[in-house]
């Protein structure tokens, strides 16, 4: 394989741990994203106008109740997704790592997801799951981007590849009850991923992952978005309705439009 030494290190780490966490190269793009979020929050909650970004995001539970959280989240995510360059900015924060792990002709999810987890809120939990179990292609990766420092129960967890392989072997037994039963059977093996603002997590969404009640004193803000090679197999999430090509190269564009001469 003719990959560079740095790409090799990154690939081996991803294959070994099922994820990488790295500093973001393009901090300008990250700051653009966070500033846009703060502007949208200020617009929705005018009383927050003078609060600094980190403090505002970490303490959003002081301004939004659990009962209003989903409505608030939808308003913010619709607002941010309507920004024409938002997805490009999101891509920029992880571009180098994606090109090393996935390839340089990429398809990106059309709409980026937002997760806000208020302290002690049990209404926004993601039970243990593997995206591939519910129809995603195993060729996809998730770029998980926090807007605040995520640590402890404010973060997400993942089951490492070796333990995941064991689970797959015994899946019929371990998954016979609820997803909570499944979590209890793997809770000593899962790894909690501390990711700070300024870092990005790229993980294998085929590995079981999820979150629990945020028992920290701060709110979590994170986004997630899937990427895959344009010409790799698709699962239930198809080109057009879910993915869009974002970095098609000239040769592919030529090839897709090519017509053989007619012989008759």
């Amino acid at each position: 394989m003719f990959i560079t030494e740095s790409e090799k290190i990154l690939s081996e780490e991803y294959l070994d741990k099922g994820y990488i966490i790295r500093k973001i190269d393009d901090t300008e793009a990250l700051d653009w994203i966070r500033n846009k979020f703060c502007l949208l929050i200020n617009h929705t909650l005018p009383e927050t106008n003078d609060i600094e970004a980190e403090e505002l995001l970490n303490n959003i539970h002081k301004y939004v109740s659990v009962s209003k959280l989903n409505e608030f989240r939808l308003k913010i995510i619709q607002g941010i997704n309507s920004e024409e360059i938002f997805r490009e900015m999101y891509f920029r924060v992880a571009r180098n790592y994606l090109e090393a792990l996935v390839g340089n002709e990429l398809a990106m999810q059309l709409r980026i997801n937002l997760s806000i987890q208020l302290p002690q809120d049990d209404s926004s939990l993601l039970p243990v799951h593997s995206d591939v179990w519910s129809g995603d292609s195993p060729f996809e990766v998730v770029v998980w981007l926090p807007l605040v420092n995520c640590y402890g129960s404010k973060a997400m967890y993942i089951l490492p590849p070796d333990k995941s392989a064991e689970l797959v072997e015994k899946f019929a037994i371990k998954a016979s009850g609820s997803s909570e039963t499944l979590f209890q059977s793997i809770k000593n093996d899962v790894q909690w991923l501390d990711v700070s603002y300024g870092e990005v997590l790229i993980f294998d969404q085929g590995l079981p992952h999820g979150n629990r009640i945020n028992e920290e004193n701060e709110s979590r803000w994170s986004m997630n978005c899937r990427f895959k090679g344009v010409f790799t197999p698709y699962g239930d999430k198809k080109i057009g309705e879910f993915f869009e090509p974002i970095t098609l190269r000239a040769a592919s564009q030529k090839g897709m439009a090519y017509k053989l001469p007619k012989s008759s």
């Binding site: 398809a107 059309l110 060729f139 010409f231 197999p233 698709y234 080109i239 057009g240 869009e244 090839g255």
Partner: peptide, 29 residues
């Protein structure tokens, strides 16, 4: 959730079409 009303947006739709038409020639699992 997409639309077109100008050339740039048409190009976006057309690119998705062309990739979709190429996919049967790509490998599958």
């Amino acid at each position: 959730g997409l639309k077109f009303s100008n050339k740039k947006e048409c190009d976006r739709i057309e690119l998705i079409w062309r990739v979709r038409q190429t996919l049967p020639d790509c490998y599958r699992y």
